[in-house]
Amino acid sequence: MPNLGEVIRNSQIWKSIFRHPMPVDRRNRIVVMLTNFFLHLHPVSIKKQGIALSYTWCMGGVTFFLFLVETITGVLLMFYYRPTTEWAYMDILSLRDTASLGILRELHRWGAHAMVIAVWLHMYRVFLTGSYKPPREFNWVVGVVLLLLTLLLSFTGYLLPWDQLAIWAITVGSKMGAATPFLGAEGPGSMLLQVGSIPMITGASDARFGLLGARFVGEETLNRFYVLHCVAIPLAVALLLAIHFWRVRKDGGISGPL
């Protein structure tokens, strides 16, 4: 009797998907890393120190994993949510009663908080091991942009439940737009930008207006933040992550003493 596992692994279907035998010996453990799409991000071998949890804290990995969790739960949430002032709050409210998905929103929200914390801890680790030093300077810069995008992802998502917490947090946060020097209607120097005696920078044309799509947080803002949150920023993050990971490899793998 051939055992079932063997039958499956010898089948044409299995072999067409996995291009390598089981990684049980040294040769095949190398082959698996080279031939599997998901694994080939990694090198084949690595210094022991580079995978020590006490060294990396696995925080970059945790951040990435949380990004994936957010993507999946986020897509699922999109099935239930309509970004209009009429429906947004109701849709979120009724999520609680959609029993089978009772914790979907919780997973997404706590995952977002966790991602912010994880990305700070990752940056903290990279600083403390001096891993931004040559040749990894540029990857640190890519990282800073990722940090910023992570915060913006969280910030734009904060508005979507359309409850009191949401609109007032965003109202407070976006006051900054109006205060931008020259470009904000309440910012220093904005009154200097005039054509004849007509001011160019007003509440209907300044940086905050650009952010909110309106003079205050309203229907347009909800739509704008929705698109930023669900499409624009995640795409940017995905692109930068690809560069970030690629650079980790090209810069010589995880840092270590020379």
């Binding site: 990684p23 453990r29 190398i30 990694h42 210094k47 022991k48 120190q49 949890l53 990995g61 270590g256």
Partner: peptide, 24 residues
């Protein structure tokens, strides 16, 4: 040398790193 230097030997990513990631 710093402690990190003592762990200089090369090991295979499968299984050590892949499993660490899985556990994380």
């Amino acid at each position: 040398d710093p402690l990190e230097k003592l762990n200089n030997e090369k090991i295979l990513v499968w299984p050590d790193l892949v499993y660490t990631e899985l556990i994380c």
